[in-house]
Design a protein around this nucleic acid. Structure first.
Ligand SMILES: [Zn+2]
Ligand SMILES: [Zn+2]
Ligand SMILES: [Zn+2]
Ligand SMILES: [Zn+2]
Lengths: 144, 144
DNA sequence: AAATTCTTTGAGACTCATTCTCAACAACAT
DNA sequence: ATGTTGTTGAGAATGAGTCTCAAAGAATTT
């Protein structure tokens, strides 16, 4: 945590930016779990911990961190973004249409084929959005 | 067009719904091209043709058609939806980050692997969102 | 430690896509 | 032609996200 704090301060300093309690708290909050959280969830988690922060700052900070590759932003088609820690490796997501459970997957062959498809179509691939939607087989899922 | 009209009327009737000039015009407008259009584009195309229609009806009708599998809705992460005709076969999209050109692709191996991934993770796959983003090699692209 | 500089924050106004409300309108069956 | 009931239009409402600007506060210098 302490090394983490120094780390963030350094990363920001390179761009002439300052570390603040709010920024540190938001990064810690995301790195604490592997969840995929939206802005309201993050905002209320911080509030519950007694951290003085506003929604505007949460929005601004998340965008800052996405641009500095400290976190990932994902759009699961819900009309709002979710954010996750970047402490895990690259992966894509499967979402249950019934219980909204988000499962991560990574398939090397698919990643290779994405490169091939881009090349075949005259594109230099920068990034991709890949999500599967279906019904999970969980006992706890309302579907079962 | 006439057979198309009868067609739409039949499809709607099954659900106890009525065909109207607005609904027919919106479907015709989308089937006329293979473009991926947003609501404003569709709305103004209809207006330009002198068709009496409101934004509310365009929104409502597009959702109705998506639910009845008459058109497809896509979310390219622009903060708004685009719609396309369903007269083409299933495909996914590559988008140029510079000129926003949308190119369609279809890779059978990827589609198979999506099924495998879903199965491996205990999901029954219903649909997927798959988009590639990169730089196109077009001469007319501002990037070149 | 205090002063200085310049970034960051908070509160609320604002934007924009989309949804909702409800009275007027118009398909369609008989 | 009439009645029933689905549909439309106009504008209000919603909700995520952005913007504004004065006050607060990091980081640096003295
Ligand atoms: Zn489930
Ligand atoms: Zn994830
Ligand atoms: Zn391009
Ligand atoms: Zn397409």
């Amino acid at each position: 945590m302490s090394s983490n704090k120094n780390n963030l301060t350094k990363i920001l300093k390179i761009s002439g930016l300052r570390n603040t309690p709010q920024r540190q708290a938001i990064l810690d909050e995301l790195n604490r779990t592997r969840d995929h959280r939206d802005v309201e969830e993050i905002y209320f988690s911080l509030k519950k911990k007694g951290i003085k922060v506003s929604r505007a700052t949460v929005y601004r900070t998340l965008e800052l961190f996405v641009n500095h590759y400290l976190i990932r932003r994902l759009d699961l088609g819900e009309g709002k973004y979710r954010y996750e820690s970047r402490e895990s490796d690259h992966h894509d997501h499967i979402v249950c249409l019934d219980c909204n459970k988000i499962t991560e997957f990574m398939n090397n062959r698919i990643e290779e084929l994405q490169e091939e498809v881009a090349q075949e179509n005259g594109f230099f691939l920068k990034r991709h959005v890949h999500q599967l939607f279906g019904h999970c087989l969980n006992e706890t899922c309302p579907n079962k």
